[in-house]
Simulated scan of single mutants.
Amino acid sequence: MSGLLGFCRQGFEPELAAELTERAAMAGIAGYARAQRNDGYVLFASDEADALDRAMPSRDLVFARQKLRVLAELRGLDPRDRISPMLAALEGQRFGDLWVEHPDSDSAKPLAGLARSFGNALRPALRKAGVLSAQDDTRLPRLHVVFVQGDHAFLARSQPRDASPWPLGIPRLKLLPDAPSRSALKLEEALLVLLDADERARLLKPGMTAADLGAAPGGWTWVLTRQHLRVTSVDNGPLRQHVLDTGLVEHLRADGFHWKPAQSLDWMVCDMVEQPRRVAERMATWFREGWCRHAIFNLKLPMKKRWDETRLCLDLFAEQASRPLTVRARQLYHDREEITVFATRHS
């Protein structure tokens, strides 16, 4: 078996399969997607897996939480000895770290105990065989053992520089007691996933200015104030008092979808329930008119043809913004029927 393995939200397998298929076709690489709804992963089989891996940087993928290069698919594993066939399949290769995982799906969650215990047994066996370095080494590929059933596993690799730094691609965030709403986790995850550490340091500096469109009850505003940004929160609804008490927030009771700032801001964020094409067009207006330099916004997707709508909205946004932008989008762990988009103007 050769190809790519992508983790995704349960139920979004068709979207990831469609995305991988289209991106492979655009790169001129033959292959096919193997997916079943609610499995939490998609396999894209191809005889040109290395070229496919290079053609699809993880950061460019929307519906994949994690992208792995498949090395082998092992079926019919004997519970009494799963290690020997893995060592045989990995002979001659070397890795800097080991992750034993399972898809984030209802059917695969019972495999969590197996993944933990098997990792403890496999790690010393791999080191003894010279397959795994004695200490974590980010210069080498990471080995992923992905159980989809107790007797069925994929062996795969990732390059640390082109992979999520979290198992299953899921940052485990805690909702703090003073967070005004669970939506705060969406923006916190977006800042971790869509921006790298250098970008967070450069683009989120104390004293920068931001607008939060559709802010009530203040979850995204609260996240921005924790970065010490000064925020104009636009919503006809109320904000939580402790958010206003930060001294960093001006609450304007107005329609966030039509409001515009008097002067250019560093940031604009938006998590409003509107048709995704309308949101894409409005967000493009913010960049075209020079009202912000950076933005994070959500696009609420329809129940069907979500990849088609995603591609249409992102193309529409880029076209109507009418200026060079860096754009990244991801279906985040804390999202639901939506994707989150980060956009920044080129200097």
Rank of each mutant, 00 (worst) to 15 (best):
D196M: 00
S181N: 10
A89M: 08
E19N: 04
V234P: 05
V273F: 00
R306E: 09
G290Q: 08
M56C: 13
N236D: 13
P103L: 00
P79Q: 09
D162F: 07
C8R: 00
D255T: 01
A115R: 12
P103D: 00
A321G: 01
P165Q: 03
R182Y: 08
R311C: 05
N298L: 10
D335T: 07
L244S: 13
F342C: 05
V70G: 00
P85Y: 02
S322K: 15
D78L: 05
M56D: 08
H294Y: 12
M1E: 13
A321Q: 10
W286K: 03
P160G: 00
E19S: 01
A55L: 11
L316I: 07
P57I: 02
R253C: 03
R278F: 07
G169M: 07
M283F: 12
S158E: 09
L314R: 06
H144Q: 05
L252H: 08
Y32S: 15
E101Y: 09
A64L: 03
S233M: 06
L143P: 02
D198C: 14
I29F: 00
S347M: 10
P180V: 03
P165D: 06
L299T: 10
K128H: 15
V279H: 07
Y333C: 03
W222M: 00
A343I: 07
A125W: 09
K300H: 01
S322C: 15
R157T: 12
Q241T: 12
T310M: 08
L5T: 07
K305Y: 04
E338R: 12
L265H: 02
L74G: 02
K205C: 01
A33Y: 07
E319C: 09
E91Y: 11
L74W: 02
D53N: 15
R75K: 15
R161I: 14
E309C: 14
L140D: 04
A284W: 06
G169P: 06
G130K: 01
E274L: 13
R23M: 13
W286Q: 08
A134E: 15
V243N: 00
L43K: 15
A197N: 13
I339T: 12
R202Y: 07
D198R: 15
A295Q: 11
R127W: 08
E189A: 01
V234L: 09
S107C: 11
D60G: 06
W220H: 09
V193Y: 04
L252R: 15
R65Y: 12
P171T: 10
D212G: 10
A129W: 03
S164K: 01
T344W: 04
L195Y: 07
R142F: 10
R142H: 11
R293L: 06
R80I: 11
D212I: 04
A112Q: 13
S347C: 14
F317Y: 05
E250I: 11
T344Y: 05
G11A: 01
R253E: 14
W291L: 05
I339C: 06
A216Y: 11
L168V: 14
V42W: 00
E13K: 08
L316K: 04
N38I: 12
E15L: 06
A125V: 10
L71N: 03
L140W: 01
A134T: 03
R34T: 13
S181V: 06
L239P: 01
A318I: 03
V145K: 08
D53L: 14
L155K: 04
L332E: 14
G28Q: 00
T344K: 10
W166C: 10
V131R: 09
S46V: 03
D178Q: 05
R80L: 13
T225G: 05
L20E: 12
A45T: 05
V269W: 05
R69E: 04
K174I: 13
L192S: 04
